[in-house]
């Protein structure tokens, strides 16, 4: 009898534990650990940007999940008070800096599915920009026991991104905006060649560092192919400059 009671207590205890509210931030299906810093250089170019002079935005695409049907409060703080941090969270959209407001708080009642918090950073029309936001969420009325926070860096600045890439995944090459980024385990002599779709070589460069960035601003908009070789191996990829 004692064993039956013990077993029943364990089952009841587990059931209460599993129903505790849990808030989780994710990106592309991957959990962003609480307290960590997530950096995004995901550029969104408005299709009407050229017509209306609309600047590009950095769109980190962060989602928030709550495992019970509750009203969740989410707050975004523009850490450096630079303005242009845009936040909607399923409701009315607001931009930091307008009206002297640098912390934006919104509520949303969940149905259990992950919700795009709709966080963006509006870049300057020309040049580089970086927005830093602290994003905090909690179940309404239960802040003390459910609060979770992450830090988000949104930028198109190569020096900020290459600094992040140094500690990020190795053996990576990618084109973001009009910059070619590379990050390898070891430094060695590599050659980068860029071709047009007709096969003609348009530019070349020697890359001798393990990691860095190369500007492609002199290339016009279009579709290109890059080939990166180190004598023994080569990779070749297509990319689009908008």
């Amino acid at each position: 009898m004692k064993k039956i009671f013990t077993l029943l207590s364990v089952v009841l205890g587990l059931s209460f534990t599993s129903s505790a509210q849990t808030l989780t931030f994710t990106h592309d299906g991957e959990v962003i650990p609480a307290g960590s810093t997530f950096t995004s250089d995901n550029i969104y170019e408005d299709p009407l940007g050229d017509l209306f002079g609309i600047p590009d935005e950095v769109r980190p695409e962060i989602f928030l999940s709550c495992n019970v049907n509750e009203t969740v409060v989410c707050m975004v703080e523009d850490v450096d008070k630079v303005g242009n941090v845009k936040f909607c969270f399923g409701g009315d959209c607001q931009v930091s800096g307008i009206g002297g407001i640098y912390a934006i708080e919104k509520e949303y009642t969940f149905s259990g599915t992950a919700l795009d918090i709709q966080l963006d950073f509006v870049l300057p029309l020309t040049g580089y920009g970086t927005g830093k936001a602290k994003v905090t969420a909690w179940v309404k009325g239960k802040e003390a026991t459910t609060k979770v926070s992450i830090n988000v860096v949104m930028t198109n600045d190569p020096s900020v991104i290459s600094g992040i890439n140094q500690s990020a995944a190795k053996n990576v090459t990618k084109v973001v905006g009009k910059t070619f980024y590379y990050n390898f385990d070891v430094a060695t002599h590599r050659t980068l060649a860029i071709y047009g779709l007709n096969g003609s070589q348009i530019m070349s460069a020697s890359l001798n560092d393990a990691a860095g960035a190369l500007s492609l601003t002199e290339l016009p908009k279009g579709v290109y192919i890059y080939r990166l070789a180190d004598g023994a191996n080569a990779i070749q990829r297509k990319f689009i400059l908008k």
């Binding site: 017509l51 209306f52 002079g53 845009k86 931009v95 509006v122």
Partner: peptide, 15 residues
């Protein structure tokens, strides 16, 4: 309204 969310009629009739 607002430059953050609006499209200006001055730039284009689509605004």
């Amino acid at each position: 309204a607002t430059s953050a969310f609006g499209l200006s009629e001055e730039a284009s009739p689509l605004g």
